[in-house]
Design a protein around this nucleic acid. Structure first.
Lengths: 244, 244
DNA sequence: GGTATAGAGTGGTATAGTCCAATTTTGCGT
DNA sequence: ACGCAAAATTGGACTATACCACTCTATACC
């Protein structure tokens, strides 16, 4: 399986091995692959060599990992299909940067008129408001405020630490909510004083402002988000379809 | 410089150090940066830690290396500045504004490396370059440069007046080319001097920069566009699908 | 029955060293 | 001066080991 005397580097051979097993269905989507220590023992190589192979596959989007849990096969459609909308966390991992967050505010409160309008809610509906500074490699990249109807996902504010976890992942795994599509607007503007402070910006720094309403497959609005991305640190990628 | 007792991983600090030195011009473009062993000695870390930092920067495209020669700062010019967008004409009509254009440049010429890379073309391929100021109700809104393979739509530069006609409409009706989807990047930045002049802007005006590669249904790249939209006059709307 | 807590397992980070192949530099013999 | 071989340097690959923070689970305790 793995040839130590080959001219092909071991970590490349291990990458190929894992990739083939994913393609062959031996490692199904979302399943855990053997631990780095197990693979190192199996192939009689050092753990670092296995780790290098796995990290390159993470970089390529085939795998993702969590300390203490293991390494998992990603849903491969993300890269292969024409797929577009990713959470900040997933997008940063795909780019090879480490995402993290600083939670500025997290609470349940009645929806503002801006939110009721965007999500088509009756006024007074309780929503979860989550306001975070998003960081990539520990550098602040964006200020983001999310609003989700509290009833569809009760109690997640207290149960989860969103400085580490992905909101979309929690919605998916904890509440069974799958986001199907989103309407977004993009604009370029100057930073507000609040954004300047939160993101450590100079005045005149250009901001990529994004508002987003996400919907499930039943076309019910799920979440409303306003984000301010640092223009000098972030480019937004999207695949857009014509017509329909 | 490098704090061993910080909570920030050493290799991240080293990445930041190198990145900052590149930005500050200490490590100019195409220059050699210190060897891995020198940096390891300088920061009192193991060579592997420096190597990890450098390899991630190589991954990100900031550096490139050759065994026996060293590690060099890549030239970033290729990925810098200018962009484009959807059918401006159709979008403006949808918004109830009157679209028009001022053609700054229209010619057939060999593709630049930026274009060949984006459209996956052999170098030297002839392309149509179309550079226009886009206006809404006679107010300049964007500066847009399009590149299309000349062979797929011969002679349209001479036959059509793109100050009035929509490029996409001509492609569709004259050449039978239907655009299926596009990959776009969005960014927020300050206007370049050229854009300031073309769009009558003050310095510091935020620009919504968009690059786009459009594809037909057969997934062949058709067109590469770079646009600069006035941040104060334009918001971009999109519907994005979430995969999986 | 519920709740701490201890332990095992996980990936992340880091060290110190080895060998290798590609490349540049150096120095020696002519 | 010149050519060429040896030496030094460089990044690439790899091993063995260590400690950390996190996650999960099983056990002990109340």
């Amino acid at each position: 399986m793995i040839a130590h005397d080959s001219h092909v580097p071991l970590y490349i051979q291990i990458k190929d091995y894992i990739r083939l097993n994913i393609q062959a269905g031996v490692f199904p989507e979302n399943s855990r692959i053997p631990s780095e220590r197990q693979l190192a023992e199996q192939f009689q190589v050092s753990r670092l060599t296995v780790s290098k192979a796995i990290n390159e596959l993470i970089q390529e989007g085939l795998l993702h990992s969590h300390v203490g849990k293991g390494t998992f096969v990603s849903s491969t459609k993300i890269e292969q299909e024409l797929r577009t909308l990713t959470s900040f966390t997933e997008e940063m991992i795909r780019r090879g940067q480490r995402p993290s967050s600083r939670v500025l505010y997290a609470a349940v409160e009645p929806a503002s008129s801006e939110v009721t309008k965007a999500l088509l809610l009756p006024s007074g509906t309780k929503i979860i408001v989550l306001r975070r500074v998003r960081l990539a490699d520990n550098q602040p990249v964006a200020l983001e405020t999310s609003a989700i109807v509290a009833a569809i996902c009760p109690g997640i504010v207290d149960k989860h630490d969103f400085s580490q976890e992905s909101l979309y992942q929690v919605l998916r795994e904890e509440c069974g909510i799958r986001i199907a599509y989103a309407r977004q607007t993009f604009e370029s503007r100057q930073a507000t004083p609040e954004e300047q402070e939160a993101l450590h910006l100079d005045p005149h720094t250009p901001i990529l402002g994004i508002t987003r309403v996400t919907y499930n497959a039943q076309e019910q609005p799920i979440e409303y988000v306003r984000s301010a991305y640092r223009g000098d640190r972030y480019k937004f990628n999207a695949i857009l379809r014509y017509g329909e």
